[in-house]
Write a protein that binds this DNA or RNA. Structure first.
Length: 340
DNA sequence: CGGCCAATAT
DNA sequence: TATATTGGCC
């Protein structure tokens, strides 16, 4: 816990300062500290700022099946502690993606998933902020925390927090998925803490996920189509591939055409919520969403549209972005269901 | 510099 | 065991 780093310099500090504030939201975990672990206790909780989360969450909650109790009960406790957290403060600044809260909406995550919460929350670490100050200036932004035991092994593990990832995605979008290269991305992101390698790897992963998603999407489309054509239903097939919740209609991408999505998958049925993860979309989606639902600030199902999540297990934040260059067509994503 | 593969840690 | 992230190599 104390590893915060009095010195705070990993190389990150200086660098990202000017970026925008948000940049700093990321954090790095110390090697493997226990920080992340959320014991049941709630140490983390203390750290975390549910406040923000919940604040917004309110909207979402209703949709979700979260137990209010839990939230209320546990959280309240934390809250006090959370005072420090400034989670939102720092990062929220960004375009207003305040969706973090939305996250909480997920509900499940909050409670059980430590990953997300942890990640995010931790990210902002109260301590850090505290001591470091959240100014955009330098400190705050470290994605990387180095944990050095006394020894000084500063291994930093980059935590690709939602924020960070978001930035990453933005950059990629701007560049165009095809053209996005590590160095550029890095520049765009403005986060100097990261190394080319880091980005490259992430990029790789990102691409990979994207590919998967697209593939999945296509597949789904085909199936649906087939079904439609043949009039046969696949029955419960549902393709057994669902690692975690792949089949679940991702908010992000959902099925494209899905003409008849209705009867497709029996097995999955309508569970309260599919898997627990979420698929957040970084930016684009949001934009899109906004367009779609201009009236209400909060989109219909906010629950899904939260970017805050993590790579909990599958494809949390990886979403398909087409090149952001000019088109924001969510083609795949977003909107597909409308016609249903 | 960019990408991929392999290794390691969680 | 699966996944995420890092490091190294081409």
């Amino acid at each position: 816990m104390l590893a915060l780093s009095p010195s705070t310099r990993d190389g990150c500090d200086g660098a990202s300062e000017f970026l925008d504030t948000s940049s700093c939201g990321f954090k790095i975990n110390m090697e493997e500290d226990e920080f992340l672990d959320f014991p049941d206790h709630g140490d983390l909780l203390d750290i975390i700022d549910f406040d923000d989360l919940f604040g917004v969450a309110g909207d979402v909650l209703p949709d979700l099946e979260i137990d209010p109790e839990i939230l209320a009960g546990d959280f309240s406790d934390h809250m006090n502690a959370s005072s420090t957290i400034t989670t939102a403060s720092d990062k929220t600044d960004s375009q207003g993606e305040t969706n973090y809260k939305g996250v909480s909406g997920k509900g499940e995550e909050v409670i059980s998933k430590r990953d997300d919460a942890a990640a995010e929350t931790v990210t902002y670490d109260a301590h850090t902020s505290d001591r470091k100050k959240k100014y955009p200036s330098s400190a705050s932004s470290k994605n990387v925390n180095r944990l050095s035991n006394n020894e000084g092994k500063r291994k930093m593990k980059v935590d690709w927090t939602p924020e960070l990832h978001r930035r990453f995605v933005e950059a990629v979008e701007q560049l165009g998925v095809d053209k996005a290269v590590p160095s550029r991305i890095l520049e765009l992101m403005g986060v100097h803490c990261l190394t080319r390698h880091n980005v490259a790897s992430h990029l790789q992963k990102y691409r990979s996920h994207r590919k998967h998603l697209l593939a999945r999407e296509a597949e789904a489309a085909n199936w649906t189509r087939k079904r439609h054509i043949y009039g046969v239903d696949t029955g419960g097939n549902v393709n057994g591939r669902s690692k975690n919740g792949w089949l679940a209609p991702a908010p992000t991408l959902g099925f494209p055409p899905t003409p008849v999505a209705v009867a497709p998958a029996p097995p999955v049925h309508h569970h309260p919520f599919r898997p627990l993860h979420v698929w957040g979309h970084p930016t684009v989606d949001q934009s899109v969403m906004s367009h779609m639902w201009p009236k209400h600030l909060p989109p219909p199902s906010t629950a899904m549209s939260n970017p805050p999540f993590w790579p909990v297990s599958d494809s949390p934040y990886w979403h398909p972005i087409h090149n952001g260059t000019a088109s924001y067509m969510p083609n795949t994503t977003t909107v597909m269901n409308k016609h249903i």
